[in-house]
Amino acid sequence: MNALQRLGRLGIEATLALGAAGIFFLRVVEQLWIVVRRPALLVQQLFSVGVLTVIIIVLAGLFVGMVLGLQGYNTLVDFGAESSLGLVVALFLTRELGPVLTALLFTGRAGSALTAEIGLMKTTEQLAALEMMAVNPMQRVIAPRFAAGAIAVPLLAAMFSVVGIFGGYLIGVELLGVDAGVFWSSMREGMDFKEDIVNGVIKSVVFGLCVTWIALFQGYTCVPNAAGISRATTRTVVTGSLSILGIDYVLTALMFGA
């Protein structure tokens, strides 16, 4: 009975949290016009969530592309199909690995930082101070960060894919001797603009919105003390990562058929 009660309470609490997050989302969207009126706020945030994340994205993209090149080659060569290496690498990157891994890395690098920053601002009464200065923190603090996250993730994902393809090229062509022309032409032949590129971009936009939303919500609603901030940061990474993977399945099923 006790376990059942606890399960019930867990369910109710989860539903409450979802509702609160939904209201939070609407309140942020309501204030988004600020980034048009004061682009400087957006630029500032694009720097901290976007520019500072580029290095990790580029390095990760390069390594993932190189692994794809190596693994793809070793598998394809058994079927005498190593000429499709370029296609395999590019498809994996644009459809799945680019958007998903970028979003996961973004969660760890920028999402956790957003949660900690907002949580600290709440704990040190900075958000309350803004309110008392008749400045809406939703507008001044949350909305620019939300917009920056949603813009940065698709761009980072595109960089990830391009660098990854280059990494696959390095291994496949330069190291393992696949013909460069074949590598590029198989890619060009097999890829489809709408099917692969557009769908990949749609995915990364959704991931970016989702992760930034979770990170900001967790920071904004954290228990205002040190333990609360650390718990909220952990929750951002865990919920963010799981949501990305879950949403990825749903989107993939919708786009490419279950």
């Binding site: 694009l46 590019a90 644009t94 393809i165 890619m187 032949e189 097999g190």
Partner: peptide, 24 residues
């Protein structure tokens, strides 16, 4: 502003590269 500008440009170029060179 310069850093953010470079970032945006790099991102858009990457998207453009994917769209034009990779995509059919």
């Amino acid at each position: 502003e310069l850093a953010v500008g470079v970032f945006l440009l790099a991102g858009i170029l990457a998207l453009g590269y994917l769209a034009l060179s990779v995509g059919n």
